[in-house]
Design a protein around this nucleic acid. Sequence first.
DNA 1: TATACCACTTTCCTAAAGTATACCGCTTTC
DNA 2: GAAAGCGGTATACTTTAGGAAAGTGGTATA
Lengths: 126, 126
Amino acid sequence: METVEHDKRKCPTHLSTEECSKTLLPVKDALDILSGKWKLQIILSLTFGKKRFKQIQREIPGLTPKMLSKELKELEINELASRHVYDTSPVTVEYELTPYGKTLKPLIGELHKWGTKHRKRIIARK
Amino acid sequence: METVEHDKRKCPTHLSTEECSKTLLPVKDALDILSGKWKLQIILSLTFGKKRFKQIQREIPGLTPKMLSKELKELEINELASRHVYDTSPVTVEYELTPYGKTLKPLIGELHKWGTKHRKRIIARK
DNA sequence: TATACCACTTTCCTAAAGTATACCGCTTTC
DNA sequence: GAAAGCGGTATACTTTAGGAAAGTGGTATA
């Protein structure tokens, strides 16, 4: 088939589709964890220590229990946060960042660094 | 009101709501630019040089012209990519990353770094 | 006995993101 | 003169993210 030569002529990229997705997959994995409206706020809240469910909710305005519950489960599945249940009168539940969760800090730092410059730029242009 | 003392007892966080959103806003700005299904793939595609519309579309499987058009416009608005129209027979249009767009590289690098470790971890756990 | 707190879950809903398909005007190639 | 490539737009649809409100089971408090 001539489509093969054709593609070679029209797509002079040195990245094959496989190489490209190989580069992108980890980036997507990282974004899956950080994107969304609440995940980062929750992670940030937990960087300051153990927190209880209602305590996190109180700290983040607008966060509903449904969302908090969902996000915490995802953080748990990804082993970024851990859940500790204490056998008290009505159960006490505490959440905390795992050591692994703390490895996100440099990444969040980069996001913050770039975001800050970008924000300045946007404001300056207006 | 006693609710004030109450809140003080229950929320011993040293971050006020304003401080917190001050930290988060730039991070959100950065994520706005990077999250979504196609933005990063397009940026990555452009890190290897100028590209034409159809060329980008061919390189990224599943990307529809509507989405590509929308995303490129957003990249342009944010001054991360530039559009060059050449006055040829049927117009030729080229897109390229601006120098500013290239400042995203370290950030994407961090995403990639963390994402790679995370991916290994997930696979190891399964 | 009524009210309130804790840690959630359930149901229903809307808005935004993304997909599918067709089309436009223009030009070169078959 | 039909088909195909270019750089898109238009329309209609589905899917996903997220929100609002109520409820659950247990306990403690007034």
